[in-house]
Design a protein around this nucleic acid. Structure first.
Lengths: 388, 388
DNA sequence: CGACTTATGTTGGAGTCCATAGATACTCAC
DNA sequence: GTGAGTATCTATGGACTCCAACATAAGTCG
């Protein structure tokens, strides 16, 4: 909303960005006439803008479409490969790194395994190994990256420092921006992993285009994240969606319903849930009862958020969302008595990659914001390598 | 964020709006040089823009400041009286109407009394009487209004229709936009009254400039409203902040702690709270205990919202906020065990006018959005009456 | 092969902004 | 009072961007 006008060159820049956006959002390549209609500019101006953008490598010409009346129109497409960003997912058991192009498509990934016992230094080393692997897979150098976003477990402050982690005491206080900044010279953002998963679902997943949603991280460590007004809600200190900390929600103990279920007797706690959900799927009454109890507790905290925010959608994510087929219906049923209007509930579908993809989305968002910021040199398209 | 460039005239328009904004946000009148610095334009261009804006009545020249070196600079101020909006507060017991100028300053008000037994038609009639009174007080005609926002009790849908009202069954389904639109030809918005109170506090009150806040309506009918990312959060169906509907928060019964207090024995329920708060202020142990219990229940629902949203601030509003001196401290204490970080809590200070003022703020917001919308004729400053 | 359709290139004109230079008006010191 | 100093005002030329209109090019269809 912070429109500020300015120079004639600024006007040209705005029109260029408008054209870039039109091309990026279009499914198929656009002709000059279509671009003129989309941007509201006259033909002649569009010609100027387009040749300039082509020279700078932002867009590329496509062979004319065959068939159709009249002289075939030249078509142009957005060059998503003009730049790349890196997404990171630093979890308890694994580190994922993915390089994506400007359209958010993955072009190279890396993965390393860690455990809850891994020390901070080892984890950081594993992170850099994953980054290097992703860069090699993408055929890029670190200097080619336009932005990096890392998702980490724990509460992440506005300054990017990890404030509080239940699972990894050793990880508190890590200054990821500083550490990553020593090796990467592009803008770096750190965010909580669950928040990034929510963002990924809103951009690429089941919640595409939804403005207000609650993302439930259903797993052994439950949590929630919020997308409000189309944007990730970070909160004042980063600790949003923590309604589970209230004892009356039973969120800290609700996984016990699954672990204590006779169906899972003898299994390790981390395997219990899958066993119970499997048995419930097969119709086992004890398992169904355990799922029911779990859903009721999950619904308590969820209802508090739904009543507070009145979201359009609730997305069920986290490890347990793999069993959405047996969990979704009891959850909806348990929400019913609490809510004025039970929002639609959908199950996450991006799987393990959701955090890395969300991280890439956030990095792309940041680039977008820079482009459209009123001032600043980066606001003008930094010329990527020209491919003629 | 939807910047779209455009014409040369559009550029001029953006620069004009930029100048208007600079002048409106400045405390004192600005000289041309200061304006040039604020907008980033050159002097010559600013002269063009300013003379144009002056001709169209948006800004006015002010006599030069005395003293100082060099030739005295002409100074200009934003003409807040170039346009006016109307705010309405349609409550259970009263209807308030206030006409404000473009700076949000009240220039005329009207008030009519109604009761919970007033019929729908009578209430609407009282509303129009209040509107007429406010217009007369302001010395304006209905056609002079640029926008109207009405705050109403009850859940307000996106279409402006009242969906659910506990206090006034007769009020459900009122199409206020249609009814007001028959007499007023400007854009009309309807919003929940508590939401508007929150907006007023964020614009003009104790929460000035805060981006994320929870507004508690503490009174006989408790509620809450949210400002998120600097904007009112309306929710998908308008029913936000309804965490009190969950039984575990005890919000629906917590006023009973005050009404049942021996200090208020024999008093009418609507007077009980004030008596108890007064006795607590004087140190009466029974009253203090009742306030303590009330604060504990209020803290439950509040904590759910705070943990969900991690706001910077909680504003205590509603009728009971008049007794913030005895309520604030127990509330903060009761929040402590639930929250990771207890946000700052401030008491509302706008009093009875908060809803009308918030309504005017929302109407002004809407005008602002129209100005900055990429297309649309209204986007260009509609010429107000020229005063030479 | 010619008519039709659509896209492309070119030109002139208008609007907006910037930089520069000279004129203007006020204060301060003597 | 008068002149130096300072900051603002005004005017001009040049550069950039956009638009509208017209003539030209490259296909399809009958």
């Amino acid at each position: 909303m912070q429109v500020s006008g300015g120079d004639l060159q600024r006007l040209r820049q705005l029109n260029s960005l408008s054209s870039i956006r039109a091309l990026r959002n279009a499914r198929a390549p656009l002709t000059l006439t279509e671009l003129a209609a989309a941007t509201g500019l006259s033909r002649g101006s569009i010609v100027d803008v387009v040749t300039d953008l082509q020279d700078r490598g932002w867009i590329a010409a496509v062979e004319p479409a065959p068939g159709g009346m009249g002289r075939p129109a030249r078509r142009y497409r957005f060059r998503a490969d003009a730049g790349h960003v890196l997404g990171l997912d630093i979890g308890v058991h694994k580190v994922l790194a993915t390089v994506t192009d400007l359209a958010g498509r993955a072009v190279g990934s890396g993965r390393t395994s860690v455990s809850s016992g891994t020390t901070r230094e080892e984890r950081l080393e594993a992170m850099f190994r994953a980054v290097d692997a992703a860069l090699i897979a993408a055929g890029l150098d670190a200097s080619d990256l336009w932005g990096v976003t890392a998702g980490s477990v724990g509460v992440v402050g506005r300054d990017g420092v990890i404030r509080r982690v239940d699972a990894l005491p050793d990880w508190v206080g890590v200054d990821l921006i500083g550490i990553l900044g020593d090796r990467l010279s592009c803008p770096i953002t750190i965010e909580n992993d669950s928040k990034l998963a929510a963002l990924a679902e809103q951009r690429l997943g089941v919640a595409a285009g939804v403005r207000d949603l609650v993302y439930l991280h259903a797993g052994r460590r439950p949590g929630a994240s919020l997308i409000l007004n189309g944007h990730l809600h970070h909160g004042f200190s980063g600790a949003t969606g923590e309604v589970g900390l209230m004892g009356i929600t039973h969120w800290r103990t609700m996984a016990g319903h699954l672990e204590r279920c006779p169906v899972a007797a003898g299994a390790a706690p981390e395997d219990a849930a899958a066993l119970v959900f499997g048995a419930a799927r097969a119709g086992d009454p004890e398992a169904l009862a355990a799922v029911e109890l779990y859903a009721r507790d999950l619904a308590l905290g969820t209802a508090a958020m739904v009543l507070t925010l009145d979201p359009e959608l609730v997305v069920l994510g986290g490890g347990f969302s793999r069993s959405a087929d047996v969990l979704l219906e009891p959850l909806a049923r348990a929400l019913e008595p609490h809510c004025l209007r039970v929002p639609e509930i959908r199950s996450s579908r991006l799987g393990e990659e959701c955090v890395v993809l969300g991280a890439a989305c956030l990095a792309l968002d940041r680039i977008d914001r820079q482009f459209f910021s009123p001032e600043g040199e980066i606001a003008r398209p930094a010329a990527p390598q020209r491919v003629s």
